[in-house]
Amino acid sequence: MAFELSGKTYETDEEGYLADLSEWNREVADYMATEDDCDLSDNHWEVINFLREYYEEYQIAPAVRVLTKAIGKKLGKDKGNSKYLYELFPYGPAKQACKYAGLPKPTGCV
């Protein structure tokens, strides 16, 4: 699968995850979110940027449990809980946010 944006073609897997994460940019994230009827706010970006940093450091997309705990530690308890994260990303915080962040599907997600 693929989509086109500003004259460039982006390859994705069958679930819409970017095939080559080095191609990622903010426009890609915005496009993917719009396709899901989601408007990316600063709160969304906070999580997306966190995921990209996590991937950069550990070379994996964290499982949702790990993400929640790490967000809580970095951004505070009011954000490090599933309620907050599911409100931002109703399709599942790890799954949906990883997609917008250009990362592969989290290890262990089915």
Binding site: E57, Y58, Q59, I60, P62, A63, V66, K69, A70
Partner: peptide, 14 residues
């Protein structure tokens, strides 16, 4: 090849 050695450092988070 993909360097997966940084991933061992995530084990603590798991």
């Amino acid at each position: 090849m993909k360097n997966f050695s940084p991933t061992y450092r995530a084990l603590g988070d798991y």
